[in-house]
Design a protein around this nucleic acid. Structure first.
Lengths: 273, 273
DNA sequence: CTGACCTGTGAAAATCCTGTGAACGCAGGG
DNA sequence: CCCTGCGTTCACAGGATTTTCACAGGTCAG
């Protein structure tokens, strides 16, 4: 039932025989891949928007461990599979604890390598941005159109830039939930937020400005001090009565994701497990 | 501040030697685990709220594949690791494509098995973005919502700050248990408490104030002189029965951390122990 | 009953966090 | 090559939150 979304894989290895065979199969399977013979700067990998990385640490040189560690920390959503020759239990354990997701030993059947890469990539597409069949979402006076990468109020565009739109979409898709900055950054920018980065705040401000401009009298984005932000459209005027009384539906067990009437957010279910 | 959430693992295997060694190490690492010698009904696994499952398909009998497939489909958030004797590439590929996350071959070093289990659990957590799948917790009149970083009483927010919320969450999560200051500080602040630090006391006071304000007539946080604090919702009215009868016994026994799963108010009987 | 310890309080002092305005660097278009 | 739009980084100001203190009131062992 999972139409196995196309996988974007990077391979860092010099074993031409293995790489050739694997490439052939991967391409036949519709994967997009890029092969490199040596360590690739993390930023470059970020830009590639990969699902997975297959790497032989033997070609990483001296600071292979450090490289892997930085990579895993920076791209928590990247599936990392190590595929190398002989290795000790200690090395494998170290790698796995560093953040590597799977460790296979050569020689290995390319089909198995692919299956393992699929396995580590599979995880990621459960809860998050399936991109998927999102129809227009309405929130307050706002209409978010994923197909146009734009939001409107009464037909007027907010003139959001790409990042602004992605941020808004993310927030709106989690309506009512408080999202932490790190989580927001991770999902919108695609990699881990550096300590002290204020980008999220700045974009929130831009969003608020544009929202206020087209839809004055409404509050959309709420700040949760020390935590992050929450999207919840509220017509202004309310003094401070039940500001926080509405969002939480009093339903105890399985929180109803949509207390709001006119909303058909298609957000994936994140109800209690 | 997510160092390493404790892992809840189920093992389905009959290889007593392997299981024994693994159990010992896992317990030493603070994992919670349950061992079974045969297939366990999926519903039961669901109820265990596992992070991961280690299984040898050899003990599953005829419909092993079907069992695994149903399991993976039913619990997409569960990390599944197969650990078995000889296997063909085709079998491994089939398993991995079915939904298994990792496949190791016996004999294997228990440390590596653990590292791989950690790896799949880690990925698991990431996949369900933001984690916090934890449903709201109810205690007394109180409703604690991890997804909002906030607690409510009848829909009204307590306006807890982040620290206050974390403290409350910790206490409520250990309902009935007396927690020492050092332990509380360590877990909420993330590092060791300096000698003479009164922060915990101060935050307990703030919590009590906010709790009293929204839920008067209830006692939630109890002081244990010379020890620490204990969370236990109690409707007022009780005079002074056995309020402080527990101190000597309550600390060490970790016997039944959660006697009541979905209980609301359970006029506790903590002294019995 | 008394002294040594603990815990509850209130408030000041120290920190941390977020909102903002503006400068910078980059890349694409004219 | 210059201009313009966009994303990133800084520094600062105003608040909110945490820590720290000094005291008062309670508790426990002798």
């Amino acid at each position: 039932m999972n139409p196995q979304q196309t996988i974007r894989l990077a391979v860092i290895d010099t074993d031409s025989g293995f790489v050739t065979v694997l490439s052939k199969r991967a391409e036949a399977a519709g994967w997009q891949l890029r092969v490199s013979a040596g360590a690739v700067p993390a930023e470059e990998l970020v830009a590639m928007k990969l699902n997975a990385l297959l790497v032989d640490p033997a070609v990483l040189g001296e600071d292979g461990w450090g490289y892997l560690e930085r990579l895993c920390e920076m791209l928590p959503d990247l599936g990392v599979v190590v595929c190398t020759g002989r290795s000790t239990v200690a090395q494998r354990v170290r790698g796995l604890r560093l953040g590597v997701d799977d460790w296979i030993t050569k020689p290995c059947h390319p089909e198995e390598a692919m299956a393992r890469i699929e396995a580590v990539s599979r995880r990621r597409r459960r809860g998050s941005h399936g991109g998927s069949e999102v129809g227009p979402v309405v929130a307050g006076e706002l209409e978010i159109r994923p197909d146009q990468f734009q939001a409107f109020v009464g037909g007027d565009s907010l003139d959001l830039t790409r990042r602004e739109f992605e941020l808004l979409q993310l927030l709106a898709g989690a309506k009512g939930q408080v999202l932490e900055r790190e989580a927001i950054y991770q999902r919108v920018w695609g990699y881990a937020m550096a300590h002290g980065d204020r980008s999220v705040d700045v974009f929130i401000r831009k969003l608020r400005q544009k929202l206020e401009k087209r839809s004055p009298g409404w509050g959309y984005i709420h700040t949760h001090f020390g935590v992050g932000y929450r999207f919840d459209p509220e017509p202004a005027g309310i003094v401070e009565e039940e500001l926080v009384a509405a969002p939480p539906s009093a339903v105890p067990p399985t929180a109803a994701p949509d207390p709001e009437p006119a909303s058909q957010v298609v957000h994936t279910s994140f109800t209690a497990g």
